[in-house]
Design a protein around this nucleic acid. Sequence first.
DNA 1: CGTCAAGTTGAAACAGGTCAAATACCGTGG
DNA 2: CCACGGTATTTGACCTGTTTCAACTTGACG
Lengths: 259, 259
Amino acid sequence: MHNLLINKLEQFTRLSAEDKQVLADVAQGRVRVRGAREDLIREGDKPTDVNLILEGWACRYKILPDGRRQIISFFVPGDLCDLHVFVLRAMDHSIGALTPITFAEISRETLRDIMSNHPRITEALWWDTLVTAAIQREWTVNLGQRSAFERLGHLLCELFIRLQAVGLTQGNACELPVTQTELADATGLTTVHVNRTLQELRGKGLIKLHGKHLTVPDLEALETASVFNLSYLHADHEGRALDARNGEAGSAGQWSRGA
Amino acid sequence: MHNLLINKLEQFTRLSAEDKQVLADVAQGRVRVRGAREDLIREGDKPTDVNLILEGWACRYKILPDGRRQIISFFVPGDLCDLHVFVLRAMDHSIGALTPITFAEISRETLRDIMSNHPRITEALWWDTLVTAAIQREWTVNLGQRSAFERLGHLLCELFIRLQAVGLTQGNACELPVTQTELADATGLTTVHVNRTLQELRGKGLIKLHGKHLTVPDLEALETASVFNLSYLHADHEGRALDARNGEAGSAGQWSRGA
DNA sequence: CGTCAAGTTGAAACAGGTCAAATACCGTGG
DNA sequence: CCACGGTATTTGACCTGTTTCAACTTGACG
């Protein structure tokens, strides 16, 4: 019953008990495990299923012929890989585990059934897909316009808020199970510079980062320093509105703030 | 009847005469015009229609509070803006005309009808949406990993090939109706550096660029120099396969090459 | 307690940015 | 057909954020 995807989708819409059951079942279908650094799927492969991340982190990435690697996006628990990939013949990028990971494979047929019989879920999955696209656009802005300092800060804001949405934060802290090399590959910087920039963020008291444990003492301060604007995560939605109307706080953390 | 969107979608699938008629009608619905630099829709607006670009170029962009601007993607004729935006409450970015432009507004209802009655079109629109997402990912790689030289070269390859797909190239030439400032905002470089880099591309004979007229004497050479890999455009598809089988060349240019 | 990956540091080099001015281009009105 | 004004392109000199390279330290884990 308890399922991070449900948490996330309820940011957007209110799901019925039946809807939730359907999603819970889906997460119990073909469950797979991978070790850190193993791929879930590789560039060139024919996509067959949609992957739902249950535990651990993964990422999309692409490697250029000369070895340069760009991490294109991060997947955290509750994230769905690519809702409609089947339409394409071959993957144009790989998806790799960053930590040991468990995920559920959802077949094309299962998904088709859900989408024809459960309009509420369908709409919520749509929303999730559009938010994913918005995140990708924001990464374009991040890489194109922000300085190293802002860029890293922005990434940390985004990840913290996404984790909050599925209930994986504890107060102002969360796990950040990635290496500095991976942060470098995601931000288009070198490891060395990521290291120095993290020190700068720490020096200004914007983050605390020991090992894989991240604390953001003042999220608003970090957002300001990183030129971060929440709106691209599209959290201000019906789910929230319903919560407010019912005076019924969502079980998971909230994306939006204030009015 | 003649419609650039049809050209593009036929890269992916074979459309029936009726399908084509439906698409042609759509392009004749609510046609609008905008001057260069005018916005089609602005960040914060509620999205109501899907825009189909008929003539001229546009772009998605985002402006940071301090004025930095990132162009997130280019739209060329035949491009569809955002197939499912209605799900979102507000735009998280703006879409602006780069040249004088004409576009058709497609209503939510029209689109719903098409998608429930024309599975072939639906699937083709899916494909288009997924290719758009793949392009956005490739931009992430471009901004994160490629040097200024490769980055500009890569962008020019992509645009040339996309124009080819809708039949807007003449041999190895096409129009490139954007300013160096706009190329700079798209690549995350400064105008000055774009200017110098374009001179470098010209100097190596990889492009000719007078005014708004671009020639790519040897596309493969430009691709190699730019670490460009066609596969993210997902052109190797059913439409092509059918063409090959029938020995019936597509009316528009082709994305894929060789076998 | 050894080993291997991850994180940290310093010095030097460079890609790309900044600033500011010059030149070319283009549509408009006289 | 030319002069004008505004925008786009080009150039030069200088500056800086980020990279490179290479070594050193710390930490996790069997």
